[in-house]
Structure formats: C-alpha cells, structure tokens
Design a protein around this nucleic acid. Structure first.
Length: 358
DNA sequence: GTCCGGTAAC
DNA sequence: GTTACCGGAC
C-alpha cells in the first residue's frame, strides 16, 4: 500500500508550507472551536477578521454565553449560514450550563454540542486533545479521492463513510493533529479543486488521479438535481395521410426535436377536454375525437418527470386546406406520416407512436 | 451564470 | 436519505 508514503510526504510537506494562522499553535479548545465553526463553509481569508472580532469581544466561552443572541448575530453579519451563529451561541451556553464551563474532551462527547458535527468534533478532539480521529472535510475528500482513486460519491452517506474509514486508517497515532492539519492544508494549497499544479506536487508519484488523468473527475459528487414534474397533453391531429406536428424551440427540453401540438397543464388529474383551449379551436373542424384519460405515458429525464396523455383527433379530408392554414398560424407543420417518420422525435413520442401503452 | 461546503432539519 | 442554509470565487 501507499499509506506509508502518503502520510510521510504529507507530514514532511506541512511544516514547510503551512500558513501561520492564529488558531494553530494553541490547544485551547475554545479558540479551536470558535475557529472551526467560523471556517465551516468559509474560506480562511473571509473568516479571519471575524475570528479576531469574536475573540476580542468574547475572550472566553463565558463571555460568549453571557452575550445576547442578537449581539452574536450582529457579529456574524456578512458571514452567511447564520444558523452557525445561533448554534455557536447555544453551544457556549451549553458549555457553561451543562459542562461547567469546560469543553468535552472526547470526540463522542463533542458531538453532543450544538453545531458540532463529525468534522468539527474530530478537529477539536485531535487539535486540542490529540485524539486519534481523522477529520474529513472537502479538502480531505479531494486529496484522498485523487491520490487513492476513490470514486465513492462524496454527497452520499455511504461515500462519506468510506472516506472517513480510509482517513481513520491513515492517521498516525503519534501525531494525529499534525496529520489532520497537514491533509487539509495540502488540499487547500496544493491539491486545489481547480487547476492544481501537479508538476510541483510532492505526491505526484503514486497519485492515481494524475496517472489516470482523472484530476478533474475527482472527487465524485453526484449532483442532486431536483426532479420537477410536468404534465403534457398532446394532440395527435391527423387529416388523411397528414399530421400536424410541432418543432420544439429553445429553452426547454428536446430543442429542435418534433412532437405534436400540446398543452402543458398543472396536473392531469383535473384536466378536462372541454376546458382545453386547443379543443375549443378544433371545434371549427369536422372531427372525430378519441381521448382516454386513463392512459398516460410516464417519461423520466435527468431532472424532469413527464406525465403525458394523448388526444387523438381525426379531421375530415375536406378540412385539409383550412387545417393547414390554422396550423401555420400556430407555428406548426402539416406533413405526411412518412415525412414525420424521418424527423427526430423525443422518445416519449416514439413510444406513443409504437403503441407502447395504447 | 456555476461551483464550493458542515450541520441540522425535514 | 434528502434538502435548506449563505456568500464569495471564478
């Protein structure tokens, strides 16, 4: 395994490259805790002035606990994620009221604190008490996934566990605090999210991502696209050998593909043919209409779930000319079945035409 | 405009 | 298990 090499290089790299930051070189849990809460979701440069302001105004956890919540929130102004400030304050009161003013000194007990999750508990436990528990933050995901070629999804709980497990195997028992600082600093300064300079990387030998040209693909983070539901009512309007079709335009799915005239509705449950604007217009034609609301197609895209029904309209041949005119006015085309066959269509339409559900 | 990121609440 | 929370960098 490369474990030994990885850890050795990191521990060697860190003292030569680390930034001098005010919360390093202290084992005061209050200072470490304060800095870690501020640094959650926040870059060092942005958090630094807040850290100084807080420590000046609240030198001890008692000062912070005694402050009005409004003051704490005012101090936090501009830093974002304001639940952190509320939790910071609640945690300070927790410490003074439930823990006699003394921070818990073990990972498991630190997790009981408001606003302290696995990362922050590990950071405090290792930095203040040298407990051998690995921090896993965004930097650690990146460094480990790239060096070891770990493709687990970091946005899933299982993926997070896999990284925690690996980090816990890597962390040395003699200098767990140094290791935690080193791997995060390495991620922040050397193994950066974008354009890392691998030519000067001390871990380039043995780096999986570099050897496999996967720097830009790691870590794997599966985007949680929110799936929206949409409801389409399609009108399959034919006249002899001709059908009325629609070319889909920009700013929506299936740009440039062909489908039918349609109406998008809020939900199919309450859709009624007699309320349809299109049906109203179709009344001018001599037509035969078939619609079964029981039958619908479900179509799944990455970010959309489409439910659609089809209204079949057969128009008398003598209406061909006026149908063509009406279609043109609406930006549709009246073309032969054969011609439609040769146009690109969404899978949903193809499924319908193939009678998948009808 | 897109990406980034710990925790708690849902 | 999934989502809301915020501001800054690019």
């Amino acid at each position: 395994m490369n474990f030994k090499h990885f850890t050795k290089v990191l521990l060697q790299w860190y003292p030569q490259n680390k930034r001098e930051l005010p919360w390093r070189n202290t084992q005061n849990p209050y200072i470490i805790w304060l800095s870690e809460i501020i640094l959650q979701q926040t870059r060092v440069a942005q958090g630094l002035p807040y850290f100084h302001n807080f420590l000046e105004k609240y030198p001890t956890v008692y000062d912070l606990a005694a402050a009005p919540t409004d003051d704490v929130l005012r101090m936090w102004q501009g830093l974002g994620y304001y639940s952190r400030a509320r939790n910071l304050h609640a945690c300070a009161r927790q410490i003074t009221q439930e823990f006699g003013g003394k921070f818990p000194d073990r990972y498991a007990s630190l997790l009981l604190l408001k606003g302290v999750g696995t990362y922050t508990a590990a950071a405090i436990a290792s930095f203040a008490y040298k407990e051998k528990v690995a921090v896993v933050d965004g930097n650690v995901f990146r460094v480990l996934s790239r060096y070891f070629g770990m493709t687990d999804d970091i946005s899933s709980p299982d993926g997070k566990k896999a990284f925690q497990s690996l980090a816990d195997k890597l962390i040395p028992k003699d200098v767990p605090d140094e290791f935690n600082q080193a791997i995060m600093e390495f991620g922040a300064l050397q193994c950066t999210p974008k354009n890392p300079d691998c030519t000067i990387c001390p871990l380039r030998q043995g780096c999986y991502a570099r050897q496999h040209e996967m720097i830009d693909m790691l870590p794997v983070k599966i985007k949680k696209v929110k799936v929206t539901k949409r409801y389409f009512v399609y009108y399959h309007i034919s006249c002899g050998e001709y059908i009325l079709i629609n070319k889909r335009d920009r700013k929506d799915i299936w740009e440039g593909l062909h489908d039918f005239p349609m109406e998008e509705v809020e939900t199919l449950d309450t859709f009624e043919l007699k309320k349809s604007v299109l049906m109203e217009k179709l009344k001018q034609f001599d037509a035969e209409i078939a619609y079964n609301p029981e039958i619908y197609f479900k179509h799944i895209l990455t970010h959309q779930r489409i439910f659609s029904t089809f209204v079949k309209v057969q128009i008398a041949l003598e209406n061909l000319e006026i149908l063509h005119q009406w279609g043109t006015e609406n930006g549709w085309m009246l073309i032969s079945r054969d011609a439609f066959e040769n146009l690109g269509k969404p899978k949903l339409i193809v499924n319908y035409l193939n009678d998948k559900k009808l």
